[in-house]
Simulated scan of single mutants.
Amino acid sequence: MASPDEGAPGHDSAGEGIRLQKLMAAAGVASRRVSEDLISAGRVTVNGDIVTELGRRVHETDRIAVDGTAIQLDTTRRYLMLNKPVGIVSSLSDERGRPDLSRFVSRYEERLFNVGRLDAQTSGLLILTNDGELAHVLAHPSFGVMKTYIAKTKGHITPQTVAKLRAGVELEDGPIAADKARIVGQAGAQETIIEITLHSGRNRIVRRMLEAVGHPVIDLVRRQFGPLHLGTLAPGELRDLTKVELGQLLTIARDAADPSGTDTGKGTDRER
């Protein structure tokens, strides 16, 4: 009879899991030998506990971290970064027939959905995934994941206006304050480039904040979502997250997760 380690990753006939180093190697964390060295050095935790024995058996549902950074053992999960162009609605199927995200995800076998939304006239960083738990944490404002936007606005924004944005402005759905705001530069005498960081997920929030202080948005792009940076990704292009980027996102999600394990992502801001 085959030994448990000879089966598919994460499974054996006795239901006892698979050796930690083998599952780490199967997930692409490191080779099995390097994974063994990481475990022996006390750099790997399983469900928050340091593991040093090489015989430890785990499952794909266990929460594994290396040097405090979470790793994903479930190879069925996919995580993409898209630079959403202007004119694309944040929906996988738009009932009004407008250009939507389906053109970007149709090439993938997984059923992907967007984490939160960008309005049609806003471009920039959008995450696409099939990981509902991660999406819930990233999209819900109560978890405080920061998003950074660069806006070109009408008019000359003064330092006093920036201070007002940080202190808070009153909108029709309640007050809102930028977590950070700074002037990046002037685009001529009648236009300003401003950077705004906030964790709110309210609809068109950056546009409405700037409108409220008398500086309507001309152009708006999201450059950063949590630890992710748009970088040089061109509009309309998408790519898989790197292992470092994914580890940073998973660490945020796991740190924020309900300790009881009941937070399954059912409240995600996802398209249905």
Rank of each mutant, 00 (worst) to 15 (best):
L82K: 02
P9G: 13
D263T: 01
G188Q: 03
E191I: 05
I176V: 14
V217M: 12
N114M: 15
V169S: 05
K84C: 07
A30C: 05
I39G: 11
S106T: 09
M81I: 11
E36V: 08
P9F: 13
L125N: 11
R43K: 06
L54G: 05
Q121K: 08
A70L: 14
I127D: 01
P175D: 02
R272L: 08
A187G: 06
S142G: 11
K84W: 13
S260V: 00
I183F: 11
A14C: 10
A8D: 12
D62T: 04
S91Y: 04
Q190P: 09
I150R: 15
L198A: 10
A163R: 11
T158E: 07
G267A: 15
R202E: 13
D62W: 07
T242R: 01
I150M: 01
A139V: 13
D219P: 11
D49W: 13
G144Y: 04
R117I: 06
F225P: 03
A163S: 01
T45R: 08
N203K: 15
A257H: 04
Q160Y: 07
D269A: 15
K84A: 14
D119R: 04
E95M: 02
L125V: 14
V105R: 03
A177S: 09
D219G: 15
G185S: 13
R77D: 05
I150K: 13
G97H: 01
R222N: 14
D94Y: 01
P159L: 15
G168W: 06
G124L: 02
G214V: 08
H215A: 12
V206Q: 07
I64N: 06
G155E: 09
V184F: 05
D5A: 10
P216W: 08
G7H: 08
P141F: 11
G15A: 09
R107S: 10
G226R: 00
D12T: 09
L118R: 03
E271M: 13
V86S: 00
K154H: 15
K164D: 07
G226I: 03
S91T: 06
I218G: 10
L20T: 09
R239E: 13
N114S: 09
N114F: 04
L118H: 09
S90H: 12
Y79H: 06
G231Q: 03
L220V: 12
R204Y: 11
A27I: 07
A177N: 01
K147R: 12
K180F: 03
E6Y: 07
D5F: 05
R223M: 14
R103D: 03
A167I: 02
Y79S: 00
I194Y: 09
N83F: 06
P4Q: 11
V115T: 06
I150W: 07
I39R: 01
G7R: 15
P175I: 14
V145H: 05
D240M: 10
R107N: 14
N47S: 00
L165K: 08
I18C: 13
T251N: 04
I64T: 00
P175G: 12
R56V: 14
G236E: 09
R78P: 00
G97V: 07
K152N: 12
A234I: 08
P85K: 08
V169R: 14
L118K: 09
E95F: 03
H229R: 04
K180D: 10
E53K: 15
Y108A: 11
V51K: 05
R223F: 11
